[in-house]
Simulated assay, not measured.
Amino acid sequence: MTWAEQGARTAVRCTDCGGTAVRSVGQFLHGGRELRWDAERRCPSCGAASREHAGPEAAPADVREALLTAHGPARLRLAEPLDDPVAALRVLREGVPLTKARELLAELRESGLSGTAVEMAYWQVRLGERGVATEVEEGFGRAYRYVGPPELRELTSGGGPDGRRVRTAGEFAAWAGERTAAEWAEPFTFVVDLAGALRLAPRRSEHVACAGGELVLGAGEVGFRRSGGDGRGAREAREAREAREVETVSNLSTGYCPDVRSWTAVAAALDRVGLPHPGGFTHAVVFRRCPECGRCGIVREEHYVCVFCDADLPGHWNVDEVPLP
């Protein structure tokens, strides 16, 4: 891949007339190797139009969010074993501290980097110039942005995710070894980040804190039970007794309100850790936003009627959708 572009449209308030304007954002590779972004807004009511920016620096968070929620994330994976990690490190450390570049390199070697499709195409080009062969994969599902109370998200400003990132069986075992009997007695808060990794936190943690305010591929609650099993020796028997599997799992997160289709991303994250699971949400929550009053609620027993104003609710997930003029 030597060229790519991606765009999205969102509804915003017009600063001239107060009506609803359309904001179009885009990200593209200029000249096949320079990452750029731009944004413009037009109001169909008053005709006001303005171009916000067109530059080579990294796209701001709201532009990336619009692209990721519209198209989902892409991942950059190694196409063959990395013979020269130093070459890759020299590319990845451009504009970031060496420690961060090393983290990116480790992620590239383990599960791949994640971001917008254009960002991944950019890194593919730059790494290819250093002889590092990679491939870009898409189709990992929708990305969900936080839609809960703003004050809760503000609590995460300036800090990293509270959720422990669990990507391997070893990392899960280390996290599990720190849990108390009281913690195991109830489900845990979880999110699946854009890299497809599971993040776990105590049940009463806010999902937005667990994710550090970032976009997620899935969110909900997960409960575990001991797997059991017979080992041949004392060590194997002890490991079998301590092994865990998923007993209950849901998409219950009023902060992100993920669709039931987020199960695909949740299952992939659990499989990656090696955790047996039921094969679907044991408690699937159907979130909908009312097109009349704008409030978000839960559909119960397939009764698609707003509990706040009795208006009909759509059959498709629409929590983060804003009608465009």
Score class of each variant (00 low, 15 high):
H277A: 06
L313N: 00
G212I: 14
T10P: 00
R36Y: 13
A87T: 14
G160T: 14
P258V: 11
C293G: 00
G141R: 03
P73R: 06
T99N: 08
G220V: 13
W37L: 03
C293M: 07
E65N: 10
R130P: 01
E214D: 13
V216K: 05
F188Q: 05
V191E: 01
V319G: 02
F224G: 05
E137F: 12
A211L: 01
E151T: 15
A39H: 04
H30P: 00
H53K: 12
C293D: 06
A169L: 02
M120D: 07
A169V: 10
E236K: 04
R64K: 12
G160Q: 07
A176V: 13
D259Y: 05
L29P: 01
V166S: 06
L127P: 05
S114I: 06
A237N: 10
P187W: 01
D62A: 07
D310S: 15
G177H: 11
A70V: 07
L127A: 03
R64H: 06
A268Y: 08
S253E: 00
E138C: 09
L152G: 00
F190H: 08
A269V: 11
E239R: 13
G95I: 10
P278D: 08
G231L: 10
V319K: 04
L67K: 01
V260I: 15
H30V: 15
A106L: 03
T116H: 04
P278M: 08
W123L: 12
E110M: 09
N251I: 13
G196V: 11
S227M: 06
D230A: 13
W123N: 01
A21C: 05
F308V: 15
G196M: 07
T2K: 07
V86Y: 11
R23T: 03
A169C: 00
V285K: 03
V222T: 12
A240V: 09
R226V: 04
G218V: 09
G148D: 03
A197K: 06
E135G: 02
E239I: 04
P73M: 04
V132E: 00
A39E: 03
R235D: 06
R272N: 03
G255K: 11
A237K: 11
S157G: 01
S157H: 08
I298S: 02
L152R: 14
A195H: 12
D193N: 15
V266M: 05
A173V: 12
E129R: 12
A54E: 14
W3N: 08
P276E: 03
V208L: 04
V147W: 11
S50P: 00
A143L: 10
G115K: 03
P161N: 10
A79N: 08
T189R: 10
G218A: 15
R226Y: 07
G141T: 11
A195V: 08
D310P: 04
E178V: 14
